[in-house]
């Protein structure tokens, strides 16, 4: 009898899950943003929200669960039911948090639905005639034997880790000074208190346009649309590519049919001119990726970040 009941139970669960996928979405969808309102990730979600709502035919409720540098929100997302009614916005912080060992989740606890935006990291240094580009910067540093003091946006943040990785890749002696935020680091570089920063283009674009910082190199696959004149690492002859990204993920175990609905919705949302305008002004590039390609991207990006973050911890 017991077995019968459990079979029956499983069958109804299966049936109900199929029915759920068919009439998904039938209630509000919670979008967990693990940072406070007004941050970069929050701006992206709020810019996507109207067109996603239209495409999915449901209301999306944005919940800002900040705290722990994203740890609280991601942990809450992972602990939710994978029914498609809870999604979150994965970024490189998802991986660095794992590497730093502060959280119980890993990158495998998410089902990645889409990558929406990418932003490379950019090495920008304070205005200095000897530091025009990568060649002049590295020859000047090698002859003076001084370290390059780089501000990052927080201890253990992806900018901290990428700064260290850039130092290794370029063979430069980079000393990382963690600041409380990207803007604090930019301000210190503009004031000449540190030599430069490794941040995302949106955080340094004002300083570069204002002729106070010089962008040296970016880390993306292609040049950033915000900094079209700055070469990438690959172009400069270094085998190094790593970008910050923002996408959509659900807790592991999402029904493929629901995932497909989301992918369709994201495909429509990224075509929305209002969203494209917002993305441009935030300095990000729209670069959608789904399915297997996305999984490969996650694998390729997360591995070095997690390893390097583990090294910082020790």
């Amino acid at each position: 009898m017991k077995r019968l009941l459990s079979v029956f139970g499983a069958a109804t669960m299966l049936a109900s899950s199929m029915a759920m996928a068919a009439d998904y979405p039938s209630k509000n969808i919670e979008f967990i943003v693990p940072w406070s309102a007004g941050g970069g990730a929050d701006n992206v979600v709020r810019a996507l929200q109207p067109s996603l709502e239209k495409a999915l035919g449901a209301t999306i409720v944005v919940r800002n669960l900040s705290g722990g540098g994203g740890a609280v929100g991601f942990s809450r997302a992972v602990a939710s039911k994978p029914d498609g009614y809870t999604v979150t916005i994965p970024t490189n912080a998802t991986f660095t948090l794992e590497g730093l060992g502060n959280v119980a989740f890993t990158r495998d606890d998410f089902d990645y639905i889409a990558r929406v935006l990418v932003e490379p990291y950019v090495l920008a240094v304070r205005k200095n005639d000897a530091w025009q580009d990568l060649d002049s910067l590295s020859s000047d540093l090698k002859s003076s034997d001084k370290p390059l003091r780089i501000g990052a946006s927080g201890v253990g943040s992806s900018t901290h880790i990428v700064s260290l990785m850039l130092g290794e890749a370029l063979g430069l002696n980079i000393e990382v000074i963690p600041f409380d935020s990207g803007s604090a680091a930019v301000s210190a570089a503009m004031g000449g208190h540190i030599d430069g920063v490794v941040l995302n283009p949106s955080e340094v674009i004002s300083a570069i346009n204002g002729d106070r910082l010089t962008s040296i190199v970016t880390t993306g696959e292609e040049r950033s649309s915000a900094l079209p004149d700055t070469p990438t690492m690959e172009e400069s002859g270094h085998d190094f590519e790593l970008s910050q990204w923002r996408g959509i993920a659900a807790p592991k175990g999402l029904d493929p049919a629901i995932e497909a609905k989301w992918v369709e919705a994201v495909k429509q949302a990224v075509e929305d001119p209002q969203f494209q305008k917002a993305a441009r002004s935030m300095g990000s590039d729209i670069s959608p990726l789904y399915g297997d390609e996305l999984d490969q991207f996650v694998e390729r990006t997360s591995k070095p970040l997690i390893e390097e973050a583990k090294a910082i911890r020790q």
């Binding site: 007004g38 929050d42 803007s183 002004s281």
Partner: peptide
């Protein structure tokens, strides 16, 4: 300078950038 000092001005700057104006 495009440097927000605290949370409120950071959100304000976000609003400006979404308008396509970089401070």
């Amino acid at each position: 300078l495009g440097i927000p000092g605290e949370a409120a001005t950071a959100v304000l700057m976000g609003g400006l950038m979404i308008q396509g104006i970089s401070p």
